[in-house]
Design a protein around this nucleic acid. Structure first.
Lengths: 197, 197
DNA sequence: TATTTTTAATTGACTGGTCAATCAATAAAA
DNA sequence: TTTTATTGATTGACCAGTCAATTAAAAATA
């Protein structure tokens, strides 16, 4: 029973199904039928709208990335003070929409995929660069530029590290302790900076 | 041309071939034939010595883990002062034997696999616990226990984060800047501690 | 408005390829 | 002669991707 203007609906449903499937499997090793099944359509339809499996996976990655980007922009708009900007970036990294088992598994799997696929790597680099520049916009007013670079790198590594280490724990993620750890890092770095000036 | 006492030789060769294959592919998505080919034997022989593919992969993980463990013990034995113990643990994490593209890719892939396979997860937890307790043996004399716990968690997250972020860069890994970042973290945390006491 | 035509949506069935795992056969060593 | 080492060939499953066929909506035409 075909309906009208299905394309955007189906695309969205398939991308969300892909995230769910990846989250369930814990890796990108999911079949088109599995994804299509979750979305309630046939695998042929998934191919119809996305072409190859890699294209669907890349679209999924793009979706995750743009979602994170949107959240980031919203958070930054609400934060005017430099210090608050840093906290905002940390907070959205562990916000309930981002720090879910499914999303975490997907990010992890995409990092692995990035080793093989140049296009995936390019996408992840976009994310890394954006996070970095957003962090810098908050850190630069608070410390000398080289120092800010270092701290931004540290924050980014801490965030990714807490994501990957989350894979070892079972039960629901605990965003609060993760945020606390990163905030503690920022706070200590800021205090050390204040002391030397 | 069969020879004598081949089993340990073949097992070792196959495990090393697995690491090489995983490093080349950048993921655990390697075939038995590929691994066996690198080791210079048939895929049937790989099955003969390891049973299922998962068993070979798990043995590979165990190998990586025990290698890291041995390096860790050696490093700790040479470091008597608490502060030096912490540095030793950081140093071996980024030592030339560990921080190679192949090994990095393998660790990453195994983290992803840990989401699905309980046995892999158990193995990774062993690694995490050992790193943690080794770090604690260095940190506890330097700061109150709860603080030490927090810092140890931070160091571990930083190490894993720097590993995963390495996947975005091309060219050879740069262990020095990674070590510098973690050492800077330790140093700053220690300084902050000294100030409050 | 009633009709035909075109376009969009959708699937079941099929194909070709890949790969893990098995096994019987061979050859050398003990 | 028994045990160990080794492989080529095979099997069975799975899966990405294709395609022809079906249905219904939309557009065009009468």
């Amino acid at each position: 029973m075909p309906k009208v203007g299905m394309e955007p609906l189906r695309r969205k449903a398939l991308i969300e199904a892909a995230i769910a499937a990846i989250g369930a499997r814990g890796s990108l090793d999911v079949t088109m039928s599995e994804i299509a099944g979750i979305a309630g359509v046939s695998s042929a339809l998934a191919h119809h709208y996305f072409g190859a499996k890699d294209d669907l996976l890349e679209a999924t990655m793009r979706h995750l990335l743009s979602e994170l980007g949107r959240d980031g922009c919203d958070a930054l708009r609400a934060a005017t003070l430099p210090r608050a900007r840093v906290s905002a970036m940390v907070a959205i990294s562990f916000s309930p929409t981002q720090f879910r088992p499914e999303t975490i598994a997907a990010w992890l799997a995409f990092y692995v995929e990035a080793q093989r696929s140049p296009s995936m790597r390019r996408l992840l680099r976009v994310y890394a660069r954006r996070l970095h520049s957003n962090l810098m916009s908050g850190l630069r007013p608070l410390m000398p530029a080289p120092r800010a670079e270092r701290v931004a790198e540290g924050i980014a590594a801490l965030i990714d590290g807490l994501y990957i280490r989350r894979a070892l724990k079972d039960g629901p993620p605990d965003p609060r302790s993760a945020v606390a750890l990163v905030e503690d890092y920022v706070e200590t770095m800021l205090a050390a900076e204040a002391r030397t000036s």
